[in-house]
Design a binder for these strands. Structure first.
Lengths: 315, 315
DNA sequence: GTCTTCCATAATCTTCGGTTATGATCAGGA
DNA sequence: TCCTGATCATAACCGAAGATTATGGAAGAC
């Protein structure tokens, strides 16, 4: 029945004292005000303005509207201001979830970039393996998930999960074989997985373990997994202690100390993709977009090149 | 940029959790909500709603709007309620100005009627002679003026003042000649003014004095005005003391004690009209209309018969 | 798989809310 | 006194907002 425009007009009339100057103040023409008042009057069923000759005066009801207008318009302005603050990155919130090994290097660098560029954005960060982070994304508990996908057989599994999500490729993470420094093959320039079929293996997270099994299967053996731990520092510790060998991505090796082990490139090489994942809608939220850019930059990827690389369901 | 309708929609979505149920709650169809959200989004330049398959969730910006909506809509409702209270006579204000001799009988009766019928209306009352009360009416300081107009020459003067005002005829007030009880003509059934040409006269307010002069002029003499006072009790007192004769309207005689004087009807009779005056706009304000009705009733006039008796400028 | 339940889109129509053009009235001044 | 300027009202018009119905596509339930 009463809308913001009507209140604005009533307040302008109260402030300016005439239809004409109210119209000027609001950037309208005079008849617009005339009609607006008439509409308001027939909507409310009351007389709002008293016309006496060429001057107008608000009736009591009109004064009531003008009085309320102040508060309502202030509230609307506040809302608008808050919205534009979010849109203009002067505020906003990003909830980031990243898998553990990325939180050592990629995430801190990202947060630093984001903080420097948009200090008013609040970023919350949670560590989560890709299945969980993607679930959180779908569930609305997370805005950006940093996930990884192994090239090869395992990729298909993740791809299914990416339906209707938007991904940005951050970097390729090469997987290396880590052996104790004292290992006979420690000095090799590359490692063929088949040569390590008799070793005891140290596996990481479930999906890393799946990748190990997949690679080993291709190499023609079934690895003897002696230890399993999601803690990659522990993995390296176990290898250092001579308790086995492990497949460890570069990202982890760059982050963690690994002086007493040898890291051998695989032959054939195996990589995993590090991806930033979000939804098509969230992608357009400025704070989220800024976070994605920061992630790309932190990963050393060209933000432009990888922008809007959409992974459809079965496309 | 943001209007009440948009806020209402955002709040409904927040409350209901889906477009469809929000549409039902607001009495719209689902596409209306879809379009409204889209419009809001392109107006604000931000994503307000996240679509996850078949469910929707508000983004941070959307939640901001929904949060502000509560306050804004409450304020709008409050304004509307206040307006309808005025329209429904559950609130409102009437500022009444009446000339002194009416405030003795007519006004108290009117206020009593008004109080009984619409206890929530606040009435303010000021005593003022017609010229002042009409000026206040024009000036917006008064909603209803109770004025009087002498029939005859003097009426024209007031008529000019009534341009663009609305009058309601409340009653006819017969003017009588008041003489001391000991006066030779005290026992007469009627008085011809010419018979009192040699008397000393006691005049009232300026316009009453003008009326006296006008009547005397018609009767062919120029009255000897010995005293002038706007206090009608004093006038009667002066007559009682034998200091002169006076023309006094019935309204005053009914209100004030006048045991020791004789009141003679004039021949030819002379009357003044008691009028309620307001503006065409104010006439439609419920509280003002109620006051006019109460005035008519207090005056014993038929409210219907005298309604909307418009006195135009030169019509 | 089918079926239901969501939201999105398209086409259409009404109403709102603005414009320009014009008229009527009042105030002020030559 | 009669212009003249300022003000509000009204009419005709027009574009866009905002609703509708009809339809399609995707997600989830069975």
């Amino acid at each position: 029945m009463i809308d913001a425009a009507g209140l604005r007009v009533m307040k302008a009339i109260a402030d300016e004292g005439s239809f004409t100057s109210a119209a000027n103040a609001l950037g309208f023409t005079q008849p617009a005000i005339s009609q607006m008042v008439r509409r308001l009057e027939q909507r409310t069923g009351t007389v709002l303005v008293e016309r006496y000759g060429r001057q107008v005066r608000l009736t009591e009801a009109g004064q009531v509207l003008a009085r309320h207008a102040v508060g309502v318009l202030a509230a609307l302005d506040a809302a608008e201001e808050e919205i534009t603050a979010i849109a203009g990155l002067r505020a906003g919130r990003v909830r980031l979830q990243a898998f553990p090994s990325s939180s050592a290097t990629l995430v801190p660098r990202t947060l630093a970039i984001l903080k420097a560029r948009h200090p008013d954005i609040t970023v919350t960060f949670t560590e989560a393996e890709p299945p969980e982070s993607l679930a959180a994304l779908r569930n609305g508990d997370c805005d950006v998930a940093v996930a990884f996908a192994y090239e090869g057989g395992d990729l298909g599994e993740l791809e299914e999960d990416l339906s209707l999500l938007v991904t940005r490729r951050l970097m390729d993470d090469e997987v290396r074989l880590v052996v104790p420094g004292t290992h006979p093959h420690a000095g090799d320039t590359a490692a063929s997985l088949a040569d390590f079929s008799d070793e005891e293996w140290i596996a990481g997270c479930p999906r890393c373990r799946g990748h190990l099994l997949s690679l080993a299967d291709t190499a023609g053996f079934r690895p003897n997994v002696a230890f399993e731990t999601e803690d990659y520092v522990a993995q390296l510790g176990l290898v250092t202690a001579g308790l086995g060998v492990a497949l460890v991505p570069d990202l982890i090796l760059n982050a963690a100390k690994h002086d007493e082990v040898a890291t051998l490139p695989l032959s054939p090489a195996s990589r995993r993709q590090i991806l930033a994942v979000t939804t098509p809608d969230l992608q357009r939220v400025p704070a989220v977009a800024a976070a994605l850019d920061a992630l790309c930059e932190a990963a050393g990827a060209d933000p432009k090149a990888s922008t809007a690389e959409l992974v459809g369901a079965k496309a």
